[in-house]
Design a protein around this nucleic acid. Sequence first.
DNA 1: TATCTATTTAGCTAAATGCATAATTTCGTA
DNA 2: TACGAAATTATGCATTTAGCTAAATAGATA
Lengths: 119, 119
Amino acid sequence: MLDMKQKIKIFKALGNETRFLIFKNVFTNGYTCSIDKKQPDIVVGAHTTCVSTIAEHFSFSLPTISKHLKELREANIITMEKKGNKIYIEPNLEIVKDLAECFALLVENFETNRELFFK
Amino acid sequence: MLDMKQKIKIFKALGNETRFLIFKNVFTNGYTCSIDKKQPDIVVGAHTTCVSTIAEHFSFSLPTISKHLKELREANIITMEKKGNKIYIEPNLEIVKDLAECFALLVENFETNRELFFK
DNA sequence: TATCTATTTAGCTAAATGCATAATTTCGTA
DNA sequence: TACGAAATTATGCATTTAGCTAAATAGATA
């Protein structure tokens, strides 16, 4: 169960349009990252992308996107794993499941035990 | 269904510790607002509170809390209704239901239709 | 009308945020 | 070993945010 600090960090991360759009596209497979043909041994998931590919979808500089990704990673919304030369980014479905569960708890138990959400 | 701008506004509002605590306490009945005995005709819900009562729970000034409440209201997280001299604040359960629904949709349809969340 | 209470607005400061460019690091390959 | 590609770190700047106090507004009551 997510604690308060974690929830605030997640909400803060998603409360910015650029980061929300990254979140959206990472989660909906909105980016495609061409895997380097010279490294066929690197296996990545279907939803995987990398920093520069994401940056191509924005008019912001690479360091700016890199910083936004760092914040999303620190909020545990995405994972970033270095494989060879690139960093591969994937959505963290667990965190979304946790959030869904928190909100469902709050709604379902609103009259009896609203505190559940805020644990 | 919440659109993207609304979601971002909600996340931004909840991504600050003070506002999150106000949200928590408004939703869990953490504040009690003594109803003015001189105005027995004013009927308020069980979870109702008012600006100065909320401010008493923080070390911040009244105007600061007022501004935070404004942001929560603009994000549609709480309602604020003036009755007589005071402003009565209540949780907006609908928005929480909407959020719960969004996250549930994202989790339930993750493999088939993740776009639902981001509509 | 004058006053009291509840709240917001105005105006200010300090800190945080969001962006940029330049320099650095890391890793792969010629 | 040197070079190129991917990403981060360093630094700086402009804007926003979060806080304050003082003043203004709105409503109830003496």
